[in-house]
Amino acid sequence: MTATALKPTDSTDTRQPLCTKADLVAFSGVAAWLTTSQGAVQIALFYLPGHGNELFALDHQDPFSKAYVIARGIVGDIKGSPVIASPIYKQHFRLEDGQCLEDESVQLRTWRVGFQGDEVWVERE
């Protein structure tokens, strides 16, 4: 999703700080834990500076192998859309919406993510 300023409003806020911009690796993925009302989940953060949407968050679990490896995939571009290639079976997922390009029935969950100053914040729900 797009990188936007996410600011906490009160104790019922659904946004959570995860890390700082310095923790991210440009044009690569980083795995993080996100606390939700259903428990903790692993997400993959991708930072593409200079790209229109420069920060993306997707589920970290590869739906084909069930391994938590999406953050370790190779970032690329297919038809103008930024994608991540899973390191196991090499399926490509669009960073913008999590859609698998090889199998239309499969889609990774995406999370609204953005910067607040130098902190990375993610919408939990």
Rank of each mutant, 00 (worst) to 15 (best):
P63I: 04
R94Q: 13
D97W: 10
A31P: 05
A40W: 01
E102R: 05
A22N: 08
F27W: 14
D13M: 00
H60S: 12
T12Q: 09
K79E: 15
V69K: 07
G52W: 06
R72N: 15
L24W: 02
R112H: 10
H60P: 00
D62H: 06
Y68H: 15
I70G: 08
G50A: 04
P49A: 08
H51K: 07
I70M: 14
S105F: 03
F27G: 04
D10L: 00
D103A: 11
R109A: 14
D77Y: 06
P87Q: 07
P8E: 01
S81M: 09
S28Q: 15
P63Y: 04
I84C: 09
L6T: 02
L55P: 02
G73K: 02
D23I: 12
F56G: 02
Y89N: 14
R15H: 00
E54M: 12
V75R: 06
I84K: 08
V120M: 08
G76H: 08
L95N: 11
V83H: 08
G52A: 13
I43W: 02
L108V: 12
L6K: 03
Q42D: 11
I88P: 05
I70R: 07
V25M: 02
V69M: 09
A71E: 06
L6N: 02
L55D: 01
V83L: 11
H51V: 11
V25S: 09
Q91Y: 14
V25Q: 10
E104M: 06
E96L: 12
Q116Y: 10
Q116L: 08
A40F: 00
V120I: 15
Y89W: 11
I74H: 10
L34P: 07
Y68D: 15
H60C: 12
V120T: 12
D77S: 11
A31W: 01
V120K: 04
V113G: 01
I43P: 01
F64D: 12
F46V: 07
V75S: 08
A31L: 01
T12C: 03
I84M: 05
P17H: 04
T12S: 13
T9S: 04
F56I: 03
C100F: 13
G29C: 13
G80D: 05
E96M: 12
R109P: 03
D59M: 00
T2K: 09
K90R: 15
